[in-house]
Amino acid sequence: MNGRLECNSIIKQYKDGRTALKSVTFDIKLSGIFALIGRNGAGKTTLVRILATELLPTSGMASLDGNDIIRDAKNVREIMAIVPQEARPIQWMTPRQTIISSLLWRGFGYGDSRKRADEVLDQFGLTGYKDKPNRFLSGGIKRKMLVATALASEARIIFLDEPTTGLDPISRKELWDVLNEQKKKRFIFLTTHYLEEAEALADSIGILENGELLAIGTMEELRSKVRYPYTVRVNGELDLSSTAGVVIRENGGYQQIMTSREEAYSISKRLIENGVTFSISPVSLNDIFFFFAKRRVDGEKE
């Protein structure tokens, strides 16, 4: 028991020769929410499936709370639960039946399962839906219910693989509220490609791109790693070639540059003189993500 999630040089190569993870190493505390961000195909799901003891890494090791995921897989399964990517509740069951069935699979008794199901449904504000067949529920309620299913087991570690994909903004916000509440009691490992979601929820964030972990840390730590703390977004054309900073986006009519406080001030003066619309803000996770992704692509080109 060490309260940490440790990954040491995890490599996963599939039989078709594709390398999904390229020596991923990190060490984080098992508390709050950790968000793993990355584009589709970055390797997020593969890493989750390895940590959830489904997939065997080609090499490397990982441990959850001191339990090696291979040697002590049985212990790991006792303390964790997962909601896989694209998981859906069984259509002909009701939320209550879904949770009871899941708890029975985990070895709980029928009476205990019923009690826990009612408790967790109440906790998630789903009591009103508990006896409605899942097929009649909205996408947001279904997703909330799946998270409730994982949490009903009282597992201390919860893996949620892209839990809000496809949800409308209100449903997504409702699920965020649930996760914010739950992170006080357990560790949540969340994968997402919604950067604002990671920024809003996570205590620490990892950026995974093409199987490589590009950066990891709290928002503040990530900001400190990008060298330039401000981002200037310019709606229009402006020659930024002489500016000390990194142009992270140039897209039909607007440019975005990460730069120092002084340069940001100097650019803003020029923009005001030229009557160009612009905005200045501290770098967001969006900017940080683009910075690291661009640096990796530039590094590959070099």
Partner: peptide
Amino acid sequence: HFKVDFKLQDMVVSSPTTAFIYLFG
């Protein structure tokens, strides 16, 4: 159907349930 459409097997695989218990159940 449970594995592909609902990802049930992924959830059960990552739980303390063994293949035998899943098969038997």
